[in-house]
């Protein structure tokens, strides 16, 4: 497909993803909109353009793997998986409810979910594990992992970063949702991360910086990562917390506050 046409298609999927996230969160009455909305285009590009996967055969041995390390963005992952066909879209309305497969943070037992998440800083290590196994088995599948930016404050991220370069894991692509905000406020005030790209370069990673909402840039970034040999790639995607909903954008408050159910219609109208 032509990139221009593809971008139109992905944009529409992204719009629908935001709608599903907000509906599910409003129904749940709790959860994390800010970091779900910020990373929509990253996951939509992965699942609908980049990754080789089969929703009808979630355990296909040669599938590309995706780990959501920032587990609080579960509504985003679920919305994308449902649209891809892993489970019915209607099931999103059971998010966080007792008896639901859709736990507040991802867990096993949901088709398409590769691993539980929720404790920050550990997803990159999981990705190192599957990337090592792929190399050992001579398999061509790739592993993708989405991290938050606040999560970069966890020491284990850097343990994993060192090991991925040591083992030359060019089948591994990490993505950082660089929205600049964590639960207590701005990352640069809570615990400064900059110069973030330089840190990753110093750990011998291939570093690509993109605008997290420029789909052509994202597609190019993922393609560049696939073509990179002998070292892992990190894509630092510059994003906006709460992207798409004016009062949620740049707001630490909406890190963990869902939209009110009775205001949902107005909220969704912002998506056009």
């Amino acid at each position: 497909m032509e990139t221009a046409q593809e971008v139109v298609r992905l944009k529409e999927t992204a719009r629908n993803t935001r709608k599903l996230i907000l509906e599910a969160l409003a129904e749940a009455g709790s959860g994390h909109p800010g970091g779900s909305l910020s990373a929509v285009e990253l996951l939509v590009t992965l699942y609908f353009r980049v990754m080789r996967h089969d929703p009808k055969n979630p355990k296909w041995p040669d599938r590309d793997r995706f780990f959501l390390s920032k587990g609080h963005a579960a509504p985003l992952l679920y919305s994308v998986l449902a649209q891809a066909g892993y489970f019915p879209v209607e099931e999103l309305m059971t998010l966080r409810k007792i008896g639901s497969r859709l736990q507040g943070h991802p867990s096993m037992g949901v088709p398409g979910v590769e691993a539980p998440a929720g404790s920050e800083g550990i997803g990159l290590s999981l990705a190192v594990g599957t990337s090592l196994a792929a190399k050992l088995d001579g398999k061509a599948y790739r592993t993708y992992v989405l991290m938050g930016d606040g999560e970069q404050q966890e020491g284990q991220v850097w343990e994993a970063a060192m090991s991925a370069s040591k083992f030359r894991l060019d089948n591994l692509t990490a993505i950082i949702d660089r929205n600049g905000i964590q639960q207590d406020g701005l990352t640069e005030q809570v615990m400064p991360l900059e110069p973030l790209a330089a840190k990753w370069r110093a750990f011998n990673w291939n570093v690509i910086e993109v605008d997290g909402y420029d789909l052509a840039q994202l597609i190019d970034g993922f393609d560049l990562a696939i073509g990179t040999r002998n070292r892992p790639t990190v894509i630092i995607a510059h994003t906006v917390k709460g992207k798409g909903i004016s009062f949620m954008e740049w707001s630490p408050h909406y890190h963990g506050t869902p939209p009110a159910k009775d205001k949902l219609r107005d909220v969704l109208s912002e998506l056009g």
Binding site: A127, V128, G129, T130, A160
Partner: peptide, 17 residues
């Protein structure tokens, strides 16, 4: 790097090791 040790082991188990 003991945390990485444990989580890498988990990743490898996810991949069938």
């Amino acid at each position: 790097a003991e945390q990485n040790l444990v989580s890498i082991a988990a990743g490898m188990a996810l991949a069938g090791k």
